[in-house]
């Protein structure tokens, strides 16, 4: 997993609520057996029309907006457990998603793929949308070590929460799997006791 500590870049506003994983990556694109290439079909049916022509008013097709930070409406990532949603976002180039609420499984999947989900409150989210819409090139500072977001151009500072174990994993690029394997003796001990 890639390490994450800090970035200073611009953001893309996706002002839609309840963005479900079927929108992030429709099921018909889940037939691949590796992790690469899903970015191409990220938000496929919002990005392209029936004839595969880009839909101009979808935000990813809007040349004014760019950057590795996606800002999305409430309850982002609801629906299926498909990790392909996280892979599609990272493959496209996103490193951070900001929303006022994330679905559980999506949040876990994001964290397991070095994609940082940051939860802010509703009014903070609206402030962020407004800042990007008024000035698409405004820079965001995302600092995982210090656990804050800053938008210097409007003087915004938001502290965010993250589970300390998950934070350590992201900063060091660790996988849960390494941790579990190092604890195999405990797992075997648990099995022995249960079967006794």
């Amino acid at each position: 997993m890639e390490k994450f500590t800090r970035l200073e870049q611009t953001a893309i506003p996706l002002d839609i609520e309840n963005v479900d994983t079927d929108q992030i990556i429709p099921a018909r694109f889940l037939k691949a057996t590796d992790r690469e290439g899903f970015g191409e079909n990220l938000f496929r049916d919002w990005r392209y029309d029936k004839n595969d022509k880009p839909i101009a008013d979808f935000v990813l097709n809007n040349p004014n907006f760019a950057g590795p930070i996606l800002v999305a409406g409430n309850n982002f990532g609801c629906g299926s457990s498909r990790e392909h949603a996280a892979w599609a976002l990272t493959d496209y180039g996103f490193k951070v998603v900001i929303s006022s609420f994330f679905a559980d499984i999506f949040k876990g999947n994001a964290l397991n793929n070095g994609l940082l989900p940051i939860q802010v409150n509703d009014s903070q989210l609206q402030t962020i949308f407004k800042a990007i819409n008024e000035n698409p090139s405004c820079e965001f500072i995302i600092d995982l070590v210090g656990q804050y977001i800053e938008v210097p151009s409007i003087g915004l500072h938001i502290d965010f929460e993250i589970n300390s174990y998950k934070k350590t994993c992201l900063i060091n690029g660790y996988d849960d799997i390494d941790y579990l394997i190092n604890n195999k003796h405990k797992i075997e001990e648990f099995e022995r006791k249960r079967n006794a």
Binding site: S81, R82, E83, H84, A86, I105, G108, N109, N112, N113, Y165, D175, D176, I177, Y179, L180, I181, N183, K184, I187
Partner: peptide, 16 residues
Amino acid sequence: IGTSQVAQVFASQCLL
């Protein structure tokens, strides 16, 4: 669970 977690369960029969 997500696919990373599927791998964790394969490897350890456990999840974090």
